[in-house]
Design a protein around this nucleic acid. Structure first.
Lengths: 311, 311
DNA sequence: ATGAGCTATCGAATATCATTATATCTGGTC
DNA sequence: GACCAGATATAATGATATTCGATAGCTCAT
């Protein structure tokens, strides 16, 4: 088995054609034909199914492909060993972020990448934790911030932040971040919250139960920018982390107050896929996220308790 | 970069000598010299430090080595793709087990391997969770059963079993597995327990606190076979999972009773290293362990609650 | 039916790699 | 301090593999 054969496999599988792959790799097509054939002979089964217009991976071929891609990732790591740890890297990394988190850290994160690895291609994927989990397993996302799914069995994760949730109202509600509001006082107040499918809603409902009240939810909105707009226009209050609406608060468009008795908190984790080692860029991304979060918490833009990993 | 170069790197690094590696690989020494040199030229740094009696890895070389080994593991997986999922595999796998667990599952585990993969080399490593964690990180263990360390950040783990701990006494204590004993009734009784460093002792102490009593620990013994012998000879009672002493109980050498109020339980997890994908053999080992545990619990040899992973 | 587009095969040219023989280096020993 | 043993590096050579261009054979779409 040769590395060139694996590389050929990867490109042919992607392009679905020997000739196209030959074109891309700048080597003649018969060479690729031979490489594929030899690999198939060595393994004893067909990697591709030929059909007059090209070739597609067989089932076993798909499995081999995943391993081949891992091999190439390792080879890249070996090449990267040459360069010092903080040298600019190239390549791609996909970072998954929940929408509320993306809003607040996308900018500083991109800045950190621009400074440290200007040639690296950054893909910021904003989606709900459920989707992110799925994409992570499928290898389309390399690192992600998740709301603790408590079933991180196929993930490698480290705790990131225990973020406090704030009561958000329009300016005339007169909330202040230094004057806490008890959860019980929400009884009877009209609230705007995401639907029960959201982790955030579940947390809020549990707090309501603990406080011995039931919530009066006027409107359910899953989009949090919709929530913001509705609150700003006086349709009620909502409960969100402070970070993504911090700018609105300082601009006087919204007001926010800490909640207590109980304090609603949401646990954020930083997760890597467990079925393959994280690339250098992915590790850098994770570190950068931690740094950004630390900075935001230090500047009280994001309110919560930093969770370092156990030493 | 070629696979042969990486294989050479691995063997030379292990043997510390080009000539010895040449001997083992059945190729001439200059060939290896050339391969190493070419790899070094491609990477642009020294993989080995030459010193008249051989060569040792440089710091960067060590890092490259870990990647090279992963590459080889992936190549092995590709080769294994050829054979159907349940075909006999070859190779090696190291399984880490806490002593009490090793005692009860080593035999059926070895039997399962003998039947399914007779040519595979099995290494059963029996040690405390702390050591197993360490060895797992260093790549010397491929799968392990652990007492939940609750800090499995660099592990991929799945819950295995919530095992109940039993009160163990000599035959004349007259315990029965169908007659529960309350924790509170242990007050004033002479107990033999492992030292506080052990997870088991911590659990027992917490239960004692919950039950509002303090334990009278006569002898501390970390070796659990020593514990068994001491109990058998009337030096006191101890608290252990049922499984490893099940044979003694059926043989009438010891008696055991379930404890309640509270029920002391220990959480077992099945863990794989997270920094590299598990090999087929490792996955088989994990599956075999789950099967064995399931069987033992079904036959009431091991008393506890099976913890399937969430679907 | 026919042509476009693809893969498989063949032989010659080329490049690559392993081998043998030998030179060079290093570290310990007398 | 010179020598020797054991190890790595180098050179020349021959065997082996790989690539390339040309071409045959196949499949699908028009």
């Amino acid at each position: 088995m040769e590395l060139s054969q694996l590389r050929t496999l990867i490109h042919v599988a992607e392009l679905g054609s020997l000739s196209k792959a030959a074109d891309r790799l700048h080597i003649a097509q018969p060479a690729l034909s031979r490489q594929v054939r030899m690999l198939e002979e060595e393994l004893g089964f067909a990697l591709f199914l030929r059909h007059g217009r090209g070739m597609v991976l067989s089932e076993q071929g798909k499995e081999v492909l995943t391993h081949a891609m891992r091999v190439m990732a390792e080879i890249d790591e070996i090449r990267a060993t040459a360069t010092p740890a903080d040298a600019p890297l190239t390549g791609e990394v996909a970072i998954g972020l929940p929408p509320t988190v993306a809003d607040i850290i996308s900018l500083p994160l991109a800045a950190a990448f621009g400074k440290a690895h200007p040639k690296a291609k950054l893909r910021l994927v904003s989606a709900y934790t459920g989707y992110l989990l799925d994409w992570m397993h499928r290898g389309e996302v390399d690192v992600a911030v998740l709301y603790d799914p408590r079933m991180a069995r196929s993930l490698r994760s480290r705790p990131l932040l225990l973020e406090n949730l704030f009561l958000i109202g329009p300016p005339d509600a007169g909330f202040s971040t230094v004057r806490a509001v008890s959860f019980a006082s929400l009884a009877g107040k009209r609230l705007l919250l995401p639907s029960i499918k959201h982790g955030l809603r579940i947390i809020v409902e549990r707090c309501a139960t603990d406080a011995g009240i039931t919530l009066d939810v006027g409107i359910e909105a899953d989009s949090y920018s919709a929530l913001k707009d509705l609150v700003r226009n006086g349709h009620g209050w909502t409960i969100l982390p402070l970070a993504p609406i911090h700018a609105d608060v300082t601009a006087g468009l919204l007001t926010a107050a800490p909640l207590i008795d109980p304090v609603p908190v949401r646990r954020l984790i930083l997760a890597y896929p467990a079925d393959r080692p994280a690339s250098r860029l992915a590790r850098f991304a994770g570190q950068a996220i931690e740094d950004v979060v630390k900075d935001l918490v230090g500047r009280a833009v994001w309110v919560g308790q930093l969770l370092g990993p156990p030493p």
